Computed example of a mutant assay.
Amino acid sequence: MHVINMADHVAEELARASLVSPRRNWRRALLILAALAVLAAVLTAAADLPPWPALVLAALAAAAAVGVIISEARYAGNRTRRAQLHAGLQGQKQLVRVLSVLDDDYYLVNNLKLPGRGDDVDHLVVGPNGVFALETKHYSGRIYRRDGQWYQAKTSRRGFAQPERPIRDPARQLKRNVDYLRACIKRTDPALSRRTRLWIEGVVVFSHPRASIDLAEAERQALPFPILRPAELAERIRGHVPWHGLSRGDVSRLVSMFAHLRTPGE
């Protein structure tokens, strides 16, 4: 299988949420200014120099200390968001591993940015039997639906049940992205879309090893896309029988197109 990595927006957002550069820069500034302030104070006392250089440096060091405190507070406040982004990255990496069993007739495109939208498609598999859009969720705990709303119920490390929390509907999110991607492909290359009768198969994948998908069969059947675990994914893709297959040229043309998709309204 050929792997193509587009811009990793999740990793970029995780880097921003981690505040790596601001925290590092404030700490460096504090160390340098504090050292200079101490040196200036020693020279002032030893050589009977005017005190204002030491005072200025001490004030700057105090300002840098405030910057360190603020950046560390922001970092602590981003803890939940960082955990979510890190979980997303772990889920994406796991899918790359499980899909590596597909042969070289398939392409895996990771993190496809949708033009004109803030969303992206986590993974796209393109092969002779179609195009598959994968929405990856790396949630642990019990995943279930009630009155149309999705929920996650986790258990703490000590074994205590935690309050349920609502989560975004992954099937609805995927359907919105699939419909938009299909419109982008049709706008970018209408001849290919028309000739191949291109259809995109969607799959929602819960990748966390401690996820329990608690959905009745009737609920699963009512969803627009199947809900799978990573171990089921490769076989599902290989076993799919399309209405209209894709030639090697069609596959290459589609994969090349993803680098310059046009918005439907262009």
Rank of each mutant, 00 (worst) to 15 (best):
T80M: 09
D103E: 03
D179L: 15
P226R: 13
R195E: 14
P170A: 05
A183Q: 15
R253D: 03
D169H: 15
E217Y: 15
P230T: 00
D147W: 13
R210D: 05
A59R: 01
D250N: 10
N111S: 06
A171N: 15
H244S: 05
V125L: 08
E164D: 02
R79N: 13
G118H: 13
D48S: 15
C184M: 02
A40S: 12
Y144C: 04
L39W: 11
R81P: 02
L114T: 00
Q90H: 08
D122N: 05
R82H: 03
A41T: 11
Y180H: 12
E217L: 14
R194F: 02
R97Q: 13
M257C: 12
P264L: 07
A211D: 13
R229C: 06
Q173L: 10
L102K: 02
H260C: 13
R16S: 14
R176H: 06
R187L: 05
S247K: 01
M257R: 08
V3I: 07
A133D: 01
T263Y: 10
V38K: 03
K186L: 08
V126M: 02
D119F: 14
L134E: 10
N111Y: 02
S256I: 05
I143L: 11
L228W: 08
P170S: 05
H9T: 15
S140I: 11
E12H: 06
A161R: 14
R146S: 12
I237R: 08
